[in-house]
């Protein structure tokens, strides 16, 4: 149990998907301009990744490995995740409209998100068992959300500052992201 907790902390902070592993940088810059957007995106990623992690793990264990098709795993995962997101979107729209309108436009954005695919691939590369896979599929997107919301907060404050013209918007965003990443490297000292 204690191991799993440590594992979770390491997924959230030490191996933060955005700031340490540099996966999913597109939504990191794209959806971090406003706090509400960032929060919505973070929730959507957590939701989808838990589902996608389970699906891809099962697909590998029961389809790819027995038929010796592991070399197809990346493309199969993309397909599975895309189909899954599409299906989940339809399902939510019909059955849980409240959740659908809450996650709103972020669901389709995740379809080909490299953070989602990346975590699924990490899960299988590291040969996690089902429980570990479940924890990592939850903890990585929590780390994603943490970094995204922190970053959105910083960017909202930058809006109030006098930024030189050539540095405005994305440029200063990237500089900020770099600095934020450096601070996360400090967590490496925890172990």
């Amino acid at each position: 149990m204690g191991d799993l907790f440590l594992f979770m902390i390491s997924c959230i902070l030490l191996n933060n998907i955005l700031l340490i592993q540099y996966l999913g940088n597109c939504p990191f810059l794209g959806t971090s301009k406003r706090m509400e957007t960032a929060t919505g995106m973070a929730m959507a990623v957590i939701f989808v990744l838990v589902l996608a992690g389970v699906m891809t793990w099962l697909a590998r264990k029961f389809v790819l490995v027995p038929y010796d098709l592991v070399y197809l795993q990346t493309i199969v995962f993309i397909l599975v995740i895309a189909a899954l997101v599409q299906f989940v979107e339809m399902f939510l729209k019909k059955s849980i409209p409240v959740l659908y309108s809450g996650l709103g436009i972020y669901l389709p954005l995740i379809t080909t998100n490299c953070a989602v695919l990346g975590v699924c691939l990490i899960n299988v590369q590291e040969d996690y068992d089902f429980l570990q896979m479940l924890v990592s599929s939850f903890a990585y997107p929590v780390g994603f959300g943490l970094a995204l919301i922190l970053f959105a907060g910083v960017r909202e404050r930058i809006l109030l500052a006098r930024v030189p013209k050539p540095l405005q918007d994305t440029a200063i965003g990237l500089v900020t992201a770099g600095l934020l990443s450096l601070t996360f490297f400090a967590f490496k000292g925890m172990v």
């Binding site: 389809v63 038929y67 010796d68 098709l69 070399y71 197809l72 493309i75 199969v76 397909l79 599975v80």
Partner: peptide, 9 residues
């Protein structure tokens, strides 16, 4: 198998 796999999927 690969063709079957992708096509089937």
């Amino acid at each position: 198998e690969a063709i079957w796999m992708m096509g089937g999927l």
